[in-house]
Design a protein around this nucleic acid. Sequence first.
RNA 1: GUGCCUGUAGCUCAAUGGCAGAGUGCUUCACUGUGGAUGAAGAUGUUGAGGGAUCGAGACCCUUCAGGCACCCCA
Length: 425
Amino acid sequence: MAEIIRSVKGTRDFYPDEMARRQWLLGQIRETSELFGYQYYDGPCLESIELYAAKSGEELVKEQSFVFPDRSGDLIALRPELTPTLARMVAQKQNELFFPQRWWSFGPFWRYERPQKGRTREFFQWNIDLIGADSLLADAELIALAASFLQRVGLSPDQVSVRVNHRAFANSQLMKLGLNPDQVKEMLRLIDRIDKLPPEIWKEKVLELGIDTLCFEQIQALLADLSLWEESEQLCGIFQHVQHLGLGEYICYDPSITRGLDYYTGTVFEVHDNAGEFRAILGGGHYGNLVADVGGRELAGVGFAMGDVVIDLVLQKFNAYPQELLANDGVFVTIFDEELHAKSELLAAKLRGAGLKTVLPVEIEKLGKQLKYADRVNMRFVLVLGPDEAKAGKVMVKDLVKRDQTLVGEEDLISFLKSAGLPKA
RNA sequence: GUGCCUGUAGCUCAAUGGCAGAGUGCUUCACUGUGGAUGAAGAUGUUGAGGGAUCGAGACCCUUCAGGCACCCCA
């Protein structure tokens, strides 16, 4: 046998089981987004490299994007993120759009990275943005929306939380300690990495910025002070609004959240599992100027992105996927023999006509085998139409879940099946 | 891109440098009008791939591919 050609590194195959989970997740995302009045949109998967050169510029495009020349030689990138596309789409229609706009999207993205747990080269991402709003209420809405999603999929505040910080607030705290703007910027990046580096190494890197020991200790004190947020008018406001929206249990202040992306200027937040087992589930924040880099006028907004990979791991870990994903909701019409074959086909057609999920064998096998197959493909009912039933004008309806069977008259069959809850919504 | 760990049946894993195995799953039968259970029988491998040292390699060495973990970066 020839060797099976391997799939591309970092990509995933979605067999029916995985596809069912993906579809369920998309459903939760759609329902959450629409519940808050957000509209579905999408951009192209292919973008000119210049779109990213303007903004993301850094490592994301240079090192981590799939880039290739098209037949005319132009450099094309498989989109590594959606924000630049969003910025372009908004800038193109800036004069005709009214604000704020509430938009959400779900689609594939590609990053040329080393695959590991929670990270693949091809992944799906939920993007959601409130564009053209520059208020605490906007920030609070997105945080509440994230929390609402967590609640909807059945993740509790004990398991996951939205960790919130504020860039400008963190900046001002560091400025107060006498750091210059360059040091502040570098310091925020280091704070972001504090959990990943051993304490000695981390201290070493801080001191390399030209920060003295006294100042280092003051920074440590800031990071240890979990009620520091009370000094921030913005954070106080956001926490209060999210509280009013009924989702306060999910949020907390976390001074180590700073976000790597430069365009965040205000509130920043990430969702993590509380045990710290997985990487960030979702991340986002407030940006002061979305569209300037692609040629538009200044426009603020707030948004976040969630990849499908980590949330899938978390949902599996906490058994949050519903059992009904593998629900038994179909009808299997057995074929007794050649003679009764046509009768079974007529019955199947009738059931399909009534909107019931109906499977008919494509080979006539022993009844035991047909039953076993019906069981394995998660059918709910098996219909047996043998000589006895045919003579009596009835059908034997076998319930694979309840493990019993009932003789039902042909004319009552559809109402019988529907009263048992078929078809599923 | 950097460092470390791991690749044996579809899956989970055994096997002092000396005949490649178990569990599970799969197929068939016991069961010629009834699924999961039980019992019996059966099939399945270039030990990820390529090279090397050795009388002899699944094991040791080199290369490569894939996966995992940490860094980098980020969803």
